[in-house]
């Protein structure tokens, strides 16, 4: 390990310098044996499927119309690696499908009453990826209670239709935007067998669109209204995970 470190730190060739940081991370991850027995029964690679459920009491969800006890679901299949007895790092792919009802938007400076219109429930499709680290309170990672700190990046597309009464045809619109999210989660993982895990947790998150944090403030553009929906889904959620720990 020390030879590898010397190679990484003191290497003078340009190519090696470029990948120095990456190599450093890999060496630390692979040589984390120095920190003691890690992993559940010696197994460190954890494949997890996470579903985050966020309440949607008054707003529409992926099904048409509103229903009692509605919720939105955000899925993220992930790969986790147990670094040592306390920490697990992971990367996930994320996707979500939801709906929202766009409202009339006008660019007039002089406020005039909005025209009559009918807005159909429009789709939001979200895709992205994230990286995270989990810290286990009882040092037996990946078992027990944990704090999870995640960084997500995703793009979302809002598509829909508005029918103004004074126009014969519906107007379709489509918008795209991106968001960067920070999420904290507290939860617990248990192992029901040597290979299968179950987990649950509670998460809080915030989104930013580059230079500003997204808020629930209504904006004029349908895409901004969609972002409100995305934020609401991201803000709070109850997680369920199912995992496999093969090696």
């Amino acid at each position: 390990m020390s030879a590898m470190l010397k190679l990484i730190i003191f290497q003078k060739t340009n190519k090696m310098k470029k990948y120095r940081l990456l190599l450093f991370v890999i060496v630390i991850a692979c040589s984390s044996n120095v920190f003691g027995q890690a992993g559940y029964l010696g197994k460190r690679c954890h494949f997890v499927f996470d579903a985050r459920f966020s309440p949607a009491i008054l707003t529409p969800v992926y099904m048409v119309g509103t229903h009692y006890c509605d919720f939105n679901t955000h899925f993220s299949p992930s790969f986790e690696y147990v670094v040592n007895r306390d920490w697990v790092i992971g990367a996930s792919y994320q996707f979500e499908h939801s709906k929202y009802t766009p409202e009339y938007s006008s660019h007039n400076e002089i406020p005039i009453p909005p025209p009559n219109y009918t807005a159909q429930e429009s789709d939001i499709d979200l895709y992205g990826f994230g990286i995270y680290a989990k810290y286990y309170t009882n040092p037996k990672a990946p078992l027990g209670y944990y704090y999870k700190f995640g960084l997500d990046y995703f793009t979302y597309t809002a598509t829909g239709k508005i029918k103004y009464d004074y126009l014969p045809m519906s107007t379709t619109f489509k918008g795209e935007d991106w968001a960067l999210g920070f999420r904290i989660e507290f939860g617990k993982t248990v192992f029901v067998s040597n290979y299968i895990s179950l987990g649950t947790g509670l998460s809080l998150g915030a989104l930013t669109n580059g230079y500003r944090f997204m808020s629930m403030e209504k904006r004029n553009e349908p895409i901004h209204q969609a972002s409100t929906r995305v934020l609401a889904n991201y803000f709070i959620g109850v997680n369920l995970t199912l995992g496999i720990l093969p090696f």
């Binding site: 579903a51 459920f53 966020s54 309440p55 009491i57 006890c69 919720f71 649950t200 947790g201 509670l202 709070i236 959620g237 109850v238 997680n239 369920l240």
Partner: peptide, 12 residues
């Protein structure tokens, strides 16, 4: 808190 929010999201 988990139970409170789970009461709004039935699967959990």
């Amino acid at each position: 808190l988990h139970t409170l929010f789970s009461s709004m999201t039935l699967p959990t």
